[in-house]
Design a protein around this nucleic acid. Structure first.
Lengths: 114, 114
DNA sequence: AATTAATGCTTGATATATTTAGCAAAGCTA
DNA sequence: TAGCTTTGCTAAATATATCAAGCATTAATT
């Protein structure tokens, strides 16, 4: 099974948001968000993905790709050009897995800080 | 209601394909295709749209847009830059409605020609 | 003309997306 | 410690996507 949920979850946690926070801002139920984050939903609607992408400050196409949808060919090399306006930008080129780990670590750091 | 079905139907007919032809090439049931073409399906999956886009030689993003899904911002002005490698290209800039009419007319011409 | 085949469509079945209600563990507050 | 809140989660309900079967009309074929 595809593990896109972990990524989407890492995004939320890195922003210090709760499932219900996201529910309020996106109008997507926390119950559904929970299922999304455990990759239980096979084909979430693009509209839903778009809301999350906007809230988390990630490119819509990236989420589409993670979930396994075809992505417009014009979108050159998400693999390498990714996360332009993210904090991670300063660090340079990053793979998906690396990014996730970083986000996780960021979350850890913040929790430590009280 | 959104009328994306007419467009998708015009595409098929302009290629002289039957619902069952398309079913064979895309693995999408003719029953479902029929419903698509009458706009009875609110949120067809991107995967389905992608198959059709490929078969009909239209850009994936265009179908996504017609259906009402958000489309990646990088995809500059579908409105004006549309249908590059289509026959319609020679004619110049064309609106959606115009394109549909043209496709319909093309179909008519071909049917005449026996 | 009668049969057969092809075509678009509708209906009923199944699968899956999304929501509503609510539970259980953890955190707070008094 | 007892109660109130928050948080993540699950289960049941509803909505919608997708398919399989079959019907009605039209086009071929004999």
């Amino acid at each position: 099974m595809n593990n896109y949920g972990e990524y989407i979850k890492a995004l939320r946690e890195s922003k210090g948001l709760t499932l219900r926070d996201v529910e309020k801002k996106t109008e997507v139920s926390n119950a559904y968000l929970s299922q999304l984050e455990s990759s239980k939903i096979k084909q979430p609607s693009p509209t839903t993905l778009y809301k999350l992408a906007e809230l988390y400050g990630v490119k819509y196409e990236v989420l589409m790709e993670k979930v396994g949808y075809p992505v417009p060919k014009g979108d050159v090399s998400l693999k390498s050009r990714k996360s332009e306006k993210t904090i991670l930008h300063r660090i340079g080129e990053v793979t998906s897995e690396e990014e996730m780990e970083l986000l996780d670590y960021l979350k850890f750091i913040r929790s430590r800080k009280k």
